[in-house]
Amino acid sequence: MNAVVPTPNRISEGTAVPSLPVVNKPSDIVAIATSTAPWNSAVQVATALAARWQSLLTGCFVDESLRMLRGSESEPSVLGLLLDTPVQDFEAADGFRAFARSRGVPHASWVVAHSGLARVLRELGAWHSLAVLERDVVDGEALTELLGEVLLTCRLPSLILPPDWNRDTPFQRVLVAWDGSTEAVRAIHAALPFLQGARRVVLLDGGRPHSPESECYLPHFEPFVYMARHGIEADPMCVGVPARTAGAALLKKAEQVGADLIVMGAFAHSRLREHTIGCATRYVLEHAQIPIFLQH
């Protein structure tokens, strides 16, 4: 039987190029705002991405005193009702829309939430494609607890920026962490717009976990083949280290290749109703000096 070959697109000089699937860019991006004069890094990066992809943009402000509220604590509280920031902050809203419009964003909206940040992101994750926030949006190790809860409950792809990130955001050299997990597969799929826009993509293969015999009959994901089908030619790189040092090894490889973005699956689990993330994810979150794209 003859194989069916896709009809190529024709360009000048009669050169044929293969048709590639259209990747859905993030249609709705949410930025967690922590300052307005000047706008914090998450707002600036999210605005640049929304302008590049012509995405809709939401700026969301959550007061610092409320961000770590969890569970029943995150219900609208007396403290929240007494905050100086009104629910309708017209000055900040107008400033945000003007800032976004001046940078080419087609539409921007502004919301002020009086609840815990995890609950806010879960709610926004229902109709947003990407969240952009900074690592120091909450204090210390609280971010890993916050992200564990968010990643488990809404699986919202998140771009996490290191503190005081003020570089341009072309994301031209991307390191993809691959370990054969479903989380890593989801991360590659969700990060396709970043990968297609990069000049170099390096796939760091950390080895695949042993699969039960029953899984041998399931569809198998090949990252190089999948990315090639989307026009992405990735360079292979292997690393063999124990799980306890995987995070440090990943950051070392990212530095060696000059990566300006890390794409990785975030392993998360629920233990006695506490949402936690894996040790490699935790290490990278706490020590990375470049942005991280996470997907559970």
Results as ranks from 00 to 15, higher is better:
235 D>G: 02
229 R>I: 00
16 A>C: 09
197 G>C: 12
152 L>V: 09
32 I>V: 14
105 V>S: 02
6 P>S: 07
214 S>C: 01
45 V>C: 04
79 L>K: 11
246 A>E: 15
198 A>H: 02
192 L>F: 05
121 L>W: 00
193 P>N: 09
276 T>H: 04
178 W>V: 07
82 L>G: 11
92 A>K: 11
98 A>T: 13
77 S>Q: 11
9 N>E: 09
58 T>P: 00
198 A>G: 05
201 V>N: 06
276 T>F: 01
179 D>T: 08
284 V>L: 05
22 V>W: 00
16 A>M: 12
47 T>C: 12
100 A>P: 12
237 M>L: 15
63 D>C: 08
94 D>W: 00
27 S>F: 03
126 A>T: 15
98 A>D: 15
35 S>G: 10
149 E>L: 07
222 E>T: 08
236 P>V: 15
181 S>W: 03
82 L>R: 13
164 D>E: 09
259 A>F: 04
59 G>R: 05
171 F>V: 12
118 A>E: 09
275 H>E: 14
15 T>C: 01
218 L>T: 07
187 A>R: 06
114 H>D: 12
85 T>K: 03
8 P>Q: 11
99 F>G: 09
127 W>K: 09
160 I>A: 03
110 W>Q: 08
199 R>A: 03
101 R>Q: 15
213 E>S: 10
183 E>V: 08
140 G>A: 12
